[in-house]
Design a protein around this nucleic acid. Sequence first.
DNA 1: GTCTATACACGGATAGAC
DNA 2: GTCTATCCGTGTATAGAC
Lengths: 234, 234
Amino acid sequence: MRDDKPVEEAAGSETPHDEASPPLRRRKAHIRESAEAHLLACAEAVFAERGFEGASTAMIAERAGVPKANVHYYFPTKLALYRRVLEDLFEDWHRAANTFEGTDDPVAAIGGYVRAKMELSRRRPLGSKVWANEIIHGAEHMADILEQRVKPWLDTRVTVIDDWIARGLLADVDAKALMYMIWATTQHYADFDAQIRALGGKRALSQKAFEATTDEVVQLVIRACGARSPDEDR
Amino acid sequence: MRDDKPVEEAAGSETPHDEASPPLRRRKAHIRESAEAHLLACAEAVFAERGFEGASTAMIAERAGVPKANVHYYFPTKLALYRRVLEDLFEDWHRAANTFEGTDDPVAAIGGYVRAKMELSRRRPLGSKVWANEIIHGAEHMADILEQRVKPWLDTRVTVIDDWIARGLLADVDAKALMYMIWATTQHYADFDAQIRALGGKRALSQKAFEATTDEVVQLVIRACGARSPDEDR
DNA sequence: GTCTATACACGGATAGAC
DNA sequence: GTCTATCCGTGTATAGAC
C-alpha cells in the first residue's frame, strides 16, 4: 500500500534475543519514518488543493488510505503536520537556491538559478502551491523560516548582484526587484497552472513544451538584467 | 456605519402619495445596493486573509458590523457572495487591461500596462490575493471568466505582440511567456507582500518606495522583451 | 429589512479496544 | 501501531419574531 522507500531491514540485530527476531527498535523506527513520509506527501497534495483551512484531516487520511486517527498518531495536530510540510518544502527550495552559488559568471549563475527554479516548479508544483498559499494568507506559520533562513540567503545574493553591477556585468537593476521577478515568474508556472491551462488551450504540460518555456523564461530574465559574461568584451 | 457611496436620494418622488414620503422603490433599491457593496468589500478582505474555505460568514458579518443572518439575506450562499467578489475583481482587472490598447508603440503600451498592473496591486492588494488564491486552488469558480473573458483578451494581445516582433520592434519572445511574466511580477507585490515585508526589512509599503519599485519593474520588463519605440532608429 | 435562536452537518481531536 | 466510536466546537443556512 505504501509506495515509499524500500525497506532497509536485515541490518543486523541490535537487541540480542533468544528468538531469531528482527531488530525491533530499527523496525519500529522505520515504520514511523515511512508512515510519516507517506502522510507528508498526501498532506502536501491536499493542502495544495484546498489550503490549510480547507484541507481536513479526513481528506488527508483518505488519500493516504488510513483511518483518521492514524494521522493524529503521527502528527499531534493538523498544524504540526502542515508545519512539517512547509519545512520539507524549504529544504527543497534551499537545494535549488544553492545552484546560484559557485560561479562568478552572472549569465551562468542567474540562468542556472532560473532553470533550477523552473525545474522545481515542474517537479513539485503542489509544494509550490502550498508555499504560495501560506504567504498569501500572511505567512504566519513560516515567519521564522523567512526571517532566519530565506532572508540571510537573499541578502548575500543581493550583495553578489550589486557587485556584478558595480563591475559592469549587469545593468543597474534593483537586486531585490530582480530576485522577486525570478521567483514570481518561475513559480507562476506551478501556482497558476490552472490559469495557464485555461488560457493556453490545454497544452503547456508536456515535457517538451515545458522545456521550451524554460528557455524562454531564461532568455527573458537574462535580457531583463542585461547580464553579460565576465570574459565577454563590452 | 457604512462609508460607501453617498446617498442619492431626493431624486423626485415616483409614487405619488398624500404624505410627503420619499420614493420608496428607489430608497429600497439604494439600501440593497449600498448593503451589498459594503458586504462585498468586507468579504473581499476576509476571503483574502483566509481563503474561501477558511473564511466564515460569521467573520464577514462581524467585519461588516451586521448579524450573520443579514449576509444570507443579501447573498443566498457563501459561494454566491464569493462569486460576486470574483466578478467585481475581473471588472477592475479588465479596466487595467485596457491600458494596453490604444497605442502602437510597444514601449508605451507594455510600460503603461505594467504600471497599470502595479497600480492595481497597490490599490487593491486584497482582491489580487483572492484572485490568486482561487487560481491556485484550481479556479473552478472562475473557469467561465477565464475562458470567455480573459482568454479572448490575451489572444488579441498575443497577436499584437507577434506583430511587433515581426516588425522588429520587439525581440523574438514568446508572447504568452512575456504576458505571464508581467502578470506574475506585478501581482507578486500584492500577493506576496507578507514575504516582501519579511525579507525587505519592514519597508516596501511607503508610497515613494512603491513608485520606485514600479519604475524598476517597468525597466526590467522593457529590457526583457527588448522593446523599441516605432520611431526609434536601430 | 433586521435581528435572535436554532437546525444540522462537519471538523479536529481523543478514548480505548484490538 | 492500528482501528472504531465518540466528544465537542464551529460552520452554513434557515425560521420566525420584530
